[in-house]
Design a protein around this nucleic acid. Sequence first.
DNA 1: CCATGTGAATGTTTTCACAGCT
DNA 2: AGCTGTGAAAACATTCACATGG
Lengths: 230, 230
Amino acid sequence: MRPREIPDIVIRRLPIYERTLKQMLDAGITSVSSEELGERIGVTAAQIRRDLSYFGKFGKQGKGYDVARLAEAIAHILHLDRQWDVALAGFGHLGQAIAHYRGFEPNSFRIAAIFARNPEHIGQQVNGTVVLSETELTRVIQEMGIKIGIVAVPAAAAQNVADRMIAGGVRAILNYAPVILKVPPSVWVREIDPISALQSLTYYLDNGDQPDGHAAASLNHRLATEATGD
Amino acid sequence: MRPREIPDIVIRRLPIYERTLKQMLDAGITSVSSEELGERIGVTAAQIRRDLSYFGKFGKQGKGYDVARLAEAIAHILHLDRQWDVALAGFGHLGQAIAHYRGFEPNSFRIAAIFARNPEHIGQQVNGTVVLSETELTRVIQEMGIKIGIVAVPAAAAQNVADRMIAGGVRAILNYAPVILKVPPSVWVREIDPISALQSLTYYLDNGDQPDGHAAASLNHRLATEATGD
DNA sequence: CCATGTGAATGTTTTCACAGCT
DNA sequence: AGCTGTGAAAACATTCACATGG
């Protein structure tokens, strides 16, 4: 029998838990209750306890959770206790911002390959990674065994780039292009879509309504929407 | 009595419907069934019909929907039938990528003010918008009547920037910083969090599991993930 | 006959509330 | 006394399935 199916919505909350625990650890906090953690994150204590219960028992009754231990446990569940090579396709303003971002390395990722179409970009280096021609995309991804791709090319090129990443062995894609990618069932996609996010925010503006269910919607809403960056 | 409360999850799907309809229009398609639209987007036909039913009747039995008319109706619901001024805080690699992005104008937004801390950036122009000192943030936002802010500053500065945007009158924030912003109930926040997205993807990699519920999870998952406001 | 719009059924996620352990 | 982990209940979201109207 299967260990029980874990809802994707739960998986999407775990990185926030892990990040918050690491921040607490940096602040010298070594123990935390679900109540306290929930307050920092903006979710209920019950939700945190329920989410964690899918994976085991990490707390001590009457005491709470050991911050370091729980952070490690979640990192392990998410396979963050190793470094993942990522392939970046696209080197326009967005791709360059992604390539320069220093938040990947401390969080288990490394931009291990960058692909551009513009000949002027090919050969440039960012953080020690050389920009390659996008014609090499499938081959290099395959040879390097890369399983994660970031699509930061214009909408019109996104599906083609995704297809070629998948042909090279990519199984997870972070898509910044405003397009719904068609991928086989073995491939996971998360969308980063700031325009959609803004367009849904305007619904609540200027019509005199107060948003309601505000606090509750917070993290869940974010997780549901997967958004984008830019 | 209130017109009935519309779930935020529904609001978050509308921009995708609108975008897809506009793409179809560009392709010369003038009529569409919920079945066909759902297939393009990756959701069920029933979901599209249910979502639209919160707002009225837009289709013709036996015929489907008029693409242009439905796109306009959704744009109207989301208040996209006007242009929204947006304030951008942060002008590092990410902020510059956002400032240069050409996708705002055609989608009802305009980066109307940019704020930086680095003196070398202040005074620069991007698409006709001058970069101002972040010390001016609250005053300028207030004077310009800006209601939407984009936070693209380092994590440590994000809460302070958000507070000052809100003091200036901002009611909706797109947050790129990896921090949970604390905001009053009258303010909505959506998170753009690529690191979290990647960290949830790795759960599914390398453990031999096939993703399941994949197709169904797609759009909903993305929507669920974005978080915020509340 | 086709496809919408929607009650009813089903499925999923969150919250309640408390037994049980420290 | 305090807080976890979890059955059970409630709330929420999706899908079914069909009456209805073009």
